[in-house]
Amino acid sequence: MEKKEIKKRRMWNFFIDATEELIREEGMQKVTIRKVADRAGYNSATIYSYFNELSHLLFFASLRLYKPYLATVTSAMDNLEDPLEKYYVAWEYFCEYSFKQPEVFKAIFLMDLGEHPQALLQHYYEMYPADLITVPQDLQAILMDRNLFNRGRYSVIPLVKAGLLKSEAAEELNELTNLVWLGMFTNFLNNRGYYSIEEAHRQTMKYVKEVTENALKK
């Protein structure tokens, strides 16, 4: 690895580490470029040599904070064979962690990152390939796609292969379940006093299962 690339990775780590620390301590809404620069021991101008905007730093730091969810769901699904059970488990953990860490999941999946969000995701895993070591090959394809609807398609493919759903019904199921989560998640973000974390998780899974059961009956 060339010295220039080594320096780039080192600087990346400084700034992402600082951003992650600030998110944990103060919350994502209070993170600023100046605070990140101060925490890392550099000036703000140096950050812009490596990151175009604050949202990119928040995105990369959120991917770090996303790792416990990833480890949990990977481990849980690894021991399952039934495709429907795996599908529900995937949704259970996605709901659990997304409502526990709403700002993190918002940054990863919904935040405006500019023109090339997919490239940022791929670049992160190029910089931190160790994050993929424990992830099965079939799940890595999901991680490399930021679009929720595209990721959902990977989850319903086993249901189609098992003969539980036809392709058209699986596509409809994917769209409906993602819309359920998006609606509940947006409502949770905007009206946090309405649902507790547990209630938001429980209600979302209730609707996901109802939609799935209706699709299986067709």
Rank of each mutant, 00 (worst) to 15 (best):
V135K: 04
L63E: 03
S75W: 07
D131S: 12
A107E: 10
G163K: 04
E96V: 09
F99K: 08
D138W: 06
S44L: 00
F94H: 05
F94L: 12
L80G: 10
S44V: 07
S167F: 13
A119H: 12
H116L: 10
V160M: 08
L110Y: 14
A18F: 04
M77D: 14
N174L: 10
E92T: 07
L164S: 01
E25H: 02
P158N: 07
L176D: 12
M11K: 07
E126Y: 13
S62E: 07
N150H: 14
P158G: 10
Q101T: 04
F15Y: 03
S75D: 06
Q122W: 02
L173A: 00
I157S: 05
L120K: 08
V160Q: 04
Q101L: 15
L113A: 10
Y195E: 01
I23Y: 00
E115C: 00
K3A: 15
N43P: 07
P83Y: 01
E168Y: 13
Y154K: 04
M28Q: 15
M205Y: 03
F94D: 02
R202Q: 14
A162Y: 01
R34M: 09
F14N: 13
P129M: 06
W12D: 14
D145K: 12
A90I: 00
N52T: 11
Y154D: 02
A215L: 09
I108T: 03
Q29M: 13
R192S: 10
L179G: 15
I157Y: 01
K209D: 01
E85D: 13
I108W: 10
F185S: 07
F94Y: 09
K4D: 10
K7N: 11
M28D: 05
F188N: 03
N52G: 15
S196G: 03
T32P: 01
E5V: 08
K100Q: 15
A71T: 11
M111N: 09
E198I: 02
S55I: 09
